[in-house]
Design a protein around this nucleic acid. Structure first.
Length: 597
DNA sequence: AGCACGCCGACT
DNA sequence: GTCGGCGTGCTC
């Protein structure tokens, strides 16, 4: 018996290769194939060719969809590494490396693959500069040099940034730049992917471009590596910095990381002499930390006479001021002034927020909304009172205080005036290089009150980034003795040392591993039972586990969520255990998501 | 993932 | 009696 067997993976959450008989010639690793799988036609990727199998009634491959492999052997191997680390299936990661156009069963005549390039230099550099153009001057020569023989990826956190800088880069590298981002159509995306396949390109892209990396990749540049957009908030929950470092190790190629301040991962590498720090950023602006308590004149009032005077002074000088506020809508909830009833979402365990602009009560989790009611429908005598300050309400407060000045939200105005916005809006401002004289941050306590090991660090990055672009920055807090404020105007390294020692002490990343396992399902009690049983199973391995805890919010769109958080030192051991155990707790009614940090 | 099979509760 | 919901298990 000398039959050829192809091992095939699919885009399904089952970590398994399926064997098919090769009855045709030209079946090869990395090629897309059409096969029958569980009574359906499915697109699979051939991961290897073998001569043995343990399965008896093999089906054969129906059609080959590629002339040349879609993915190289090297990429398949890298996908395997990623899958292991992030507790995903091999197939899921492999399919992320394909443009959507190739995810359908369709014959495509691809050009041949380049041979895999393995570099000789995996040195890492962190460029500490506070603007893209300064950093770009630093990269430019190196990009030129690498492009002679290889490809370069320049990764930016957001599409908006990418579009902003693409013109100047395209001018410097005419005919070399390939743009990769998700706002491209499926067709455009596929054309970019094909272009990349030719090699010797400068790939300018969002994080997804890393999955399209070419065989001849010789340099990766990660712009603003401390950007929160690199810790994916959705589906696969990758950490882009981590992927960049893995890829550089895997291909033995150079990496340049950049930003005004490094991540703690990078700082740790620097401390361990694994990365070179190029520090050209000296002008650290003073961030004024002001204690709310000293300026109270009414309880719970954000705008104390002191704050108002400070703002008025700037406005009278003819300047624009920016007030950052992270809460949307008008109020955080609506409560009856008689019986205390609060309007909740029908599908989630959250309160409905009042939006006067939309003239609705809205759920920020599922999009559910209902009309505004004045009278309480429970006691029928009280009135529904908006509680808490959202940005709509903040706007009306500001308008009352400064009736003589322009007030805008998300709009560009001529100075003097007051602009209100959230942090995303601030990013938008940065990109437009708008001139903001003073920034008032009134809600840093909301940020610091989150129960998450990363919040203090994120708050630091947030404040420092604002300080880069604004002349005066005023931060108001009820908790000025918090350690973030102790060193914020000192040397940045002092804060990093403090934060790093805390992370080390409690085994948080970048020292330990954190795995959050989220279980979701419609039946609350069964969900909790299942979570409990998963907890007990994991406990057998002597792991440090928190939980079970309820997700916040506990219920979204009629689905309950509960989680376990596993923490420890040994990354490999913990992800191996999770990979094995979690598989068995998956079902279609109780979905599992895993976040690895 | 997506689909079949099987088990229980509701209802012409 | 059988229709249909969802939980479970399997796919080369």
């Amino acid at each position: 018996m000398d039959e050829k067997i192809a091992k095939v993976v699919f885009n399904i959450p089952v970590n398994k290769e399926f064997d098919y008989l090769c009855t045709q010639e030209n079946i090869d690793k990395g090629k897309r194939v059409e096969v029958e799988f569980n009574r359906r036609k499915m697109l699979g990727i051939v991961t290897s060719i073998s001569s043995k199998t343990s399965i008896t009634n093999l089906k054969s491959i129906s059609n080959i969809c590629d002339t040349y492999p879609s993915l190289s052997e090297e990429k398949l191997e890298f996908a395997k590494k990623l899958a292991k680390k992030y507790i995903l299936t091999w197939g899921e990661v492999i399919f992320m490396m394909l443009p959507n156009y190739l995810k359908r069963i369709k014959f495509v005549d691809l050009p041949p693959l380049l041979s895999s390039y393995i570099g000789k230099d995996k040195s890492k550099v962190f460029v500490k500069l506070n603007s893209f153009y300064k950093r770009y001057q630093f990269y430019k020569k190196q990009i030129q040099e690498i492009l002679e023989n290889n490809s370069v990826i320049l990764c930016l956190p957001l599409i908006d940034y990418l579009k902003e800088v693409s013109y100047c880069i395209e001018e410097d590298f005419p005919g070399k730049v390939v743009l990769v981002h998700s706002s491209n159509s499926s067709r455009e995306n596929f054309l970019s992917w094909l272009e990349i396949r030719k090699g010797r390109r400068l790939i300018l892209g969002t994080p997804m471009s890393l999955f399209y990396y070419p065989e001849d990749l010789g340099l990766i540049i990660l712009e603003e590596e401390n950007s929160p957009y690199y810790s994916q908030q959705k589906k696969p929950y990758f950490n882009i910095l981590d992927i960049v470092v893995m890829l550089s190790e895997f291909k033995n190629i150079k990496v340049i990381l950049s930003g005004n301040y490094p991540t703690l991962f990078t700082y740790r590498m620097y401390k361990e002499d694994k990365i070179i720090l190029v520090d050209g950023y000296r002008e650290d602006k003073r961030i004024e930390i002001l204690d709310f308590k000293n300026f109270y004149y009414k309880r719970k009032n954000l705008f104390t006479p002191f704050v108002i005077e400070l703002m008025r002074k700037k406005l009278e000088e003819g300047k624009n001021i920016l007030i950052l506020w992270s809460r949307k809508n008008y109020s955080l909830f609506l409560r009856c002034n008689q019986c205390g009833y609060v309007i909740k979402c029908r599908r989630c365990s959250s309160y409905l927020k009042l939006s006067l602009e939309k003239k609705l009560c809205v759920c920020s989790w599922c999009g559910y909304y209902e009309n505004i009611v004045d009278k309480c429908k429970i006691c029928n005598s009280g009135y529904m009172v908006p509680v808490g300050v959202g940005i709509e309400r903040l706007e009306s407060i500001v308008r009352k205080i400064f009736p003589e000045f322009l007030v805008s939200r998300g709009e560009v105005i001529n100075p003097p005036g007051i602009i209100l916005g959230n942090y995303n809006f601030f990013n938008f401002f940065v990109e437009r290089k708008l001139d903001i004289d003073a920034c008032f941050i009134l809600d840093i306590d909301n940020m610091l009150s989150l129960v998450d090991y990363e919040t203090t660090f994120n708050a630091f990055i947030y404040l420092k980034k604002i300080a880069c672009y604004v002349k005066d920055i005023y931060v108001f807090t009820h908790n000025p003795s918090h350690y973030i404020f102790e060193s914020i105007n000192d040397s940045w390294e002092k804060f990093y040392e403090k934060e790093l020692s805390l992370r080390r002490q409690f085994n948080f990343p970048p020292y330990g591993i954190m795995v959050k396992v989220i279980l979701k399902g419609k039946d609350k009690n069964k969900l909790l039972k299942r979570l409990e049983s998963l907890y007990n199973r994991l406990k057998e391995f002597n792991l440090e586990i928190f939980g079970p805890v309820e997700e916040f919010p506990f219920k979204v769109r009629d689905n309950y969520g509960g989680a376990l958080v596993i923490k420890g030192k040994n990354r490999k051991m913990i992800s191996d255990i999770c990979g094995q155990v979690i598989q068995k707790y998956k079902s279609s009614a109780y979905r599992i998501t895993v976040i690895v940090r």
